[in-house]
Nucleic acid binder design. Structure first.
Lengths: 245, 245
DNA sequence: CGGAACATTGAGAGGGATCAATGGACGTGG
DNA sequence: CCACGTCCATTGATCCCTCTCAATGTTCCG
């Protein structure tokens, strides 16, 4: 059976509480269903879109896992995020009518295609949808600020701790374990995201394991002491006056 | 005379080509004028808004200079951007109905207040305005990705070079010199933005000066060799094959 | 079974942080 | 107008976290 004929409407989608229709009333959600006529499958390693591609649509991840990355002229690239089910890709393309980053599937994935002109049209009719689109873009801006904080002011241990906590929290919101996960990305991709080299990522994983904070076996990670991870993220390490007041 | 009574409409504002009304047709711009009934002055050192403040409006910088920063529980903070005339502040507040970062004036400033509910209402009527709001948010997302690239994959010299080029380019777009500027922020604020310590910022400035790339005297900076700065930003420094072709 | 991709670990080097002192710029008040 | 304090910038010396280079181990798949 053709994938595109599998009708999974927003109204009946199990991601509706996380995804674009979040908080919308039934009539608005039905309108969204009309907008999403098209689904797209992306194989592991393939690009949903690449930097420079013309922008036409946003994408809602239905299943699978993505990374987004930007590349400089001289070939360096920086992973700017990892996206899982219910998250929206492609917001970077609006301003220039072409994508500023690339989105690569880290495992076989499926996305709902949201033609942006139609989405704008519908947002003009439904103020709840309009506001929701604004919230999604604002959320991305706030997320980016968090990454800047991480990259600009944290040391390697803190970065990796924050990364693991963020990841497991998002997975937990999707019904997965609160303490276990299988990473979909390589050490190098984690390192690129966190602004450190893959060896440093690996070493930091090992140190966490030695300290009994996590259990790591390649891509598998289990958080044994979430408080220790939280402490790493939330406490400054300058001066030694680690007061918790 | 009261500041608020000084009517400077978008239609006659000298920033209209850079600011929110950019590219809008005259009738839409007039509608914007009705929306912006209120101006606000912010003294040097004062906050336009602080993290946690309830979100009501976006702000368009009319004059002056701002920094935005986020703060962690343990008191570390990270400057996430510097904003000058024509740039929009406050997009971070939409998602949670409260601001996620603080905006501090680095010199006496004046902003146009854009009540967000009214802006949403107006964008439902005018699709050009609607799209423009989306472009502004997308632009911020793309800018943030650039900062991540800078923080995640550049060394100190490259960061400062990119910073200076970005700043002078934005100033030039506002009619200032292409090669000279007076920095409105301290070394510490630059350092926070670029993820380095103030001493490193200062040392890097000095090195650039020794190399004849720039001339620095405290806050005054003159770019003597823009190509050298560009080369720093665009060429990888791994392997030692620093060809300048 | 062999190869490719990925992860781990070690040794050594270096870039930026840290600690510390000095020097300018600017504003305020005598 | 100068003295003084404050804030900011510069510069030096030293340390250490992370990078780099390199070798080995593991997993997966043709």
């Amino acid at each position: 059976m053709d994938l595109h004929s599998i009708k999974v409407a927003c109204t009946s989608c199990n991601l509706r509480e996380l995804c674009l229709p979040m908080g919308l009333a039934p009539p608005e959600m039905e309108q969204l269903d009309h907008l999403i006529t098209n689904r797209r499958r992306v194989r592991r390693g393939a690009a949903l879109f690449a930097a420079g591609d013309p922008f036409t649509s946003l994408y809602a991840v239905r299943s699978g896992f993505f990374k987004t990355s930007v590349t400089t002229a001289d070939g360096r690239d920086q992973v700017t995020g990892f996206q899982m089910a219910g998250e929206i890709l492609g917001l970077d393309g609006i301003v220039q009518d072409k994508h500023a980053c690339s989105a690569i599937a880290l495992e076989d994935a499926e996305v709902c295609v949201l033609p942006f002109d139609k989405l704008e049209q519908l947002s003009r009719e439904f103020s709840a949808l309009q506001h929701h689109v604004h919230r999604i873009m604002s959320r991305e801006i706030v997320r980016d600020q968090g990454v800047m904080l991480l990259l600009g002011s944290m040391r390697a241990e803190e970065r990796l701790a924050a990364f693991l906590l963020n990841l497991v929290q998002r997975l937990h919101a999707r019904g997965f374990s609160k303490s276990e996960m299988v990473l979909r990305m390589t050490r190098e991709e984690i390192g690129s995201y966190l602004g450190m080299k893959l060896e440093t990522v690996s070493r930091t994983f090992s140190r966490f394991q030695e300290d009994g904070i996590i259990e790591v076996k390649q891509r598998y990670v289990r958080i044994l002491d979430p408080n220790a991870l939280n402490a790493l993220v939330n406490h400054a390490h300058t001066g030694g006056t680690d007061r918790v007041d």
